[in-house]
Write a protein that binds this DNA or RNA. Structure first.
Lengths: 241, 241
DNA sequence: CGTTAATTTGAGACCATTCAATTTCGGTGG
DNA sequence: CCACCGAAATTGAATGGTCTCAAATTAACG
């Protein structure tokens, strides 16, 4: 049962939303996952490559991104331990975006056919995985709104609210304080801003007493004010289904 | 078999990607769909409401959107005949965004439990529907990139490329010409711009000889140049799985 | 403790916005 | 078929949020 230990973060996350039987967990754990480690900034997947596996993040942070023809980068989502990085690989033949390690990452990969098999056989596993994919999509939608219709301060506040809530739900973080290894360039690429303007906006958020952010530590000093500043509502995270 | 006639646009779209048996189609068609019609601008679904049905667009155009606290609107996606408007309703309990009719719309709705049942029983139907949901998510991702990292001209060119390709794939449109009932305000809300700037940008695209757009007719006069101007690559549409 | 990455600062330029007014278009009724 | 109406598109001018480019400062790491 060393396997089910490895998948702990996944099962813990799933159990927040639905009840999987021990048989379900054993079936998933027995799929023949292989572990890998990636260094900071390493690519876990590249746009245009044929898909063969699905990837579960065990430890660290990762993000999805696309590189534009002029070389600029748009980050599409961040991912924390216990989340899948590429569920779409199950059914899509070619990757449509890149996945990159934000910190050193431990991941577990499984051939997509095996994952599809267990989903075929086990309705509860199927439901858990599809729920993940649908919530991913909900987050993408909110990000469209964030970069499309909010100004710099709102965008960054919103992003910080999202990450804080997700980290908290995953049991990472210590009260209002979180390990926060994103650089200002990551924040900029996630919000469609430049690093320079991100810097100035973060200073404004600090000055307003909403957050403290340095040395890779984020503290939410005034949650209500930050949520207000970011026009943030947690519905889209579907933390309660 | 009047039911399967109604679902024609859906089956035609699905058959482009995978082969459904007649049994599969009959099962889907027999679900007890009910038809409704909505007028232009009517809401088909509202954020915050509990979900009970899944909606298939039979005719017309619709879009998903969110309204921000300041009243501004961000459009998240457009949908054409034969596409589902809310597959996420299958598993999510509360709608996280609004769905609105862009033109008069004919839709078919089915209780989500029935759709889940047929998905449970029929692997091919399951695959077809999940493929739809995953491709929706891929489009959302590309929209994050579009509003996040492209300038006005690129955003609008990209949107026009996407819609032209999808309309063409659905058999709508006559060569390079399409019925195009979007107002400039729709385009603005989809690209994160203002209607005024959208107007000026469209004029630039016209002047450059890339498109012709008036009286609700869009013509792509120079596809290659428009795709280039919009940094457009069709991979994310996954038209070939 | 040196070296590179990350953050911070300043000033100027520009893309997109705002606000308001005007013109054109699409549909309707006389 | 024309007059009318509201919606949509267009135009102008001024404002402003964000970007660009560079340089300086600070932090991270071996």
């Amino acid at each position: 049962m060393t396997e089910s230990l490895i998948l702990g973060p996944l099962f813990r996350r799933w159990s927040r939303r639905l009840a999987l039987s021990n048989d379900d967990k054993t079936a998933v754990a027995g799929l023949g996952w292989s572990r890998k480690q990636f260094q900071r900034d390493a690519y876990l997947a590249r746009e245009g490559e044929p898909t063969s596996v699905c990837t579960l993040l065990l430890d660290g942070l990762a993000y999805r991104q696309k590189i534009l023809s002029d070389g600029s980068r748009q980050i599409i989502s961040f991912h924390i331990a216990g989340e899948f990085l590429d569920l779409q690989n199950c059914l899509l033949e070619v990757a449509d975006h890149n996945v990159q390690a934000l910190t050193r990452c431990n991941i577990a990969v499984v051939p997509k056919e095996l994952l599809l098999e267990v989903m075929n056989d086990r309705p509860n596993v199927r439901r858990a995985i599809w729920l993940d994919a649908l919530i991913d999509a909900s987050v993408f939608r909110e990000w469209v709104v964030n970069v499309g219709r909010r100004d710099a301060k709102q965008r960054i506040a919103h992003l910080l609210c999202e990450l804080a809530l997700r980290l908290k739900a995953a049991g990472l973080g210590d009260g209002p304080m979180f390990d926060f290894p994103l650089t200002q360039e990551h924040i900029a690429d996630a919000t469609g801003l430049t690093a320079v303007h991100t810097n100035r906006t973060l200073q404004a958020l600090r000055k307003a007493g909403l957050i403290s952010l340095n040395s890779s530590k984020l503290s939410i000093l005034d949650w209500d004010a930050l949520a207000e500043a970011g026009d943030f509502s947690e519905r889209y995270l579907h933390h309660s289904v």
